[in-house]
Design a protein around this nucleic acid. Structure first.
Length: 321
DNA sequence: CGAGGTCAAGGGGTC
DNA sequence: GACCCCTTGACCTCG
C-alpha cells in the first residue's frame, strides 16, 4: 500500500511565508479612502499567493506533493459589504503560475474552508453565504488550472437538536446547489456532532467521497469500530480520479482530547495503517498538527525505523506489514 | 519588543 | 434567552 503524507497551509520552516495575511473588516472600515483600502486588500492577496508559491517550492524541495491550500488567500473576499470588489482579475496571473507549478510537479492540492461554511442550515442567508464562499473556492481551483472535483472538504454542519432532520436538510440543500459545486465537495466526520457512521451514510446518499478523520472518530463516535465501515468508505471513492484521502492528528493532552497536538503519535498512526492495509492501493494522509511540515518530517523519521515501512521519498512510503 | 487582547464566524453547552 | 466557550493565525495595543 502506497502512503503519501501532506500538511496544511503553512510551514514552520519557511520564514515569513504566511499565505493567510489579512485585514479585518473593522480595519477596512477605519480606512477613509475606500479605494485605497481595496488596493491594499489586493496587495495582501497577491502577497498571499506569492507565499503560497514559495510554500509549494519548499514542498518540492522536500518531496512533498500533497498540500492543503489556505482558504484565507483573499481577505474579505466574501464580505457582504464588498460585493462590488471584483477580486479575481488582478490575481489571475499569479493563480495561473501556481497552477502551472502544481501541474508540472504532479502535486495534489485541495481546500478545507473553515467551519462557518455550512450547507445543512434552514437559514437561507447562511446557505447563500456558504455557497458564495464555495464558488470562490471553485473559481480559485479553475484559475489554478485544477479540476475542482473532490477538492473541497466540508463538515456535515450543525445538529440543531435533531440530527436526523439536520442530515435530511443537508440532502435537501445539496440537491439544489449547482452540479459543479456538488462535484467539488467531500464530507468529513467531525468531533462534536456527526460521527463517521452518520457522515458515511450521508456521503453514500449523495454519492460524495467521505474523508475519515481518525482523531475526530476517537473523540466522538456512535460505533467504536471504524474498521467495520471502512470498506463502505473506500467505496465512496470509486468514481474519483484522486486517491482516497484521510486526516490524521493526535490529541494534545488528557485535559482536552479534542485539541490538536504539535506532532503525530507514530504508534497510533501505524495502528491505523494496519487497520486499513490491503483495502486500497494508495492513500493520502493529511497531517493536521500544530507543527505543520515539521510534524511530517518527524513522522517520516520515525517511520524509517519500522520494518513494515519502505521509504520512497521525503513524504511517501510503502506499507507492508 | 514581547505579552496579552482582538478579530471574525456559527454551533454547542450551561444556567 | 443570555452568556461564554470552542476554533484559527494574524494583527494590534499596551507597558
Amino acid at each position: 500500500m502506497l502512503v503519501r503524507l501532506g500538511y496544511v497551509a503553512m510551514s514552520v520552516h519557511l520564514q515569513n511565508a504566511s499565505p493567510s495575511q489579512t485585514m479585518t473588516f473593522a480595519q477596512f472600515k477605519r480606512t477613509e479612502d475606500r479605494n485605497a483600502a481595496l488596493r491594499k486588500l489586493e496587495r495582501i492577496s497577491l502577497s498571499n499567493l506569492e507565499n503560497c508559491l514559495r510554500l509549494l517550492k519548499h514542498n518540492k524541495a522536500y518531496d512533498i506533493s500533497f498540500f492543503r491550500l489556505s482558504s484565507k488567500l483573499i481577505p474579505l473576499a466574501n464580505h457582504e459589504e464588498l460585493l462590488d470588489w471584483d477580486y479575481l482579475p488582478p490575481l489571475k496571473q499569479s493563480l495561473g503560475v501556481i497552477g502551472d507549478f502544481v501541474n508540472k510537479n504532479q502535486m495534489r492540492v485541495d481546500f478545507h474552508p473553515d467551519h462557518f461554511v455550512i450547507l445543512n442550515s434552514e437559514d437561507k442567508d447562511l446557505l447563500k453565504a456558504s455557497l458564495k464562499t464555495l464558488r470562490m473556492h471553485y473559481q480559485l481551483l479553475k484559475l489554478m488550472k485544477q479540476n475542482p472535483e473532490h477538492r473541497c472538504v466540508l463538515h456535515v454542519g450543525g445538529g440543531y437538536n435533531d440530527k436526523e432532520k439536520a442530515l435530511e436538510q443537508l440532502i435537501e440543500n445539496f440537491s439544489v446547489i449547482p452540479t459543479s459545486l456538488q462535484k467539488m465537495l467531500l464530507f468529513e466526520n467531525d468531533d462534536t456532532t456527526f460521527t463517521f457512521d452518520e457522515t458515511l451514510f450521508v456521503c453514500e446518499k449523495l454519492d460524495v467521497p467521505v474523508v475519515f478523520d481518525y482523531h475526530h472518530h476517537l473523540v466522538h463516535h456512535t460505533n467504536e469500530s471504524w474498521t467495520s465501515n471502512w470498506e463502505r468508505a473506500v467505496k465512496t471513492w470509486r468514481h474519483s480520479n484522486l486517491p482516497m484521502k484521510m486526516h490524521i492528528s493526535s490529541q494534545r493532552d488528557e485535559k482536552d482530547i479534542r485539541a490538536h497536538a504539535d506532532y503525530i503519535d507514530t504508534k497510533q498512526f501505524l495502528e491505523f495503517l494496519n487497520g486499513i492495509n490491503g483495502s486500497v492501493d494508495q492513500i493520502d494522509c493529511m497531517i493536521e498538527a500544530k507543527k505543520k511540515d515539521d510534524a511530517l518530517f518527524r513522522l517520516m523519521k520515525d517511520l524509517k525505523m519500522e520494518s513494515s515501512v519502505e521509504i520512497i521519498n521525503g513524504s511517501s512510503f510503502y506499507f507492508k506489514p
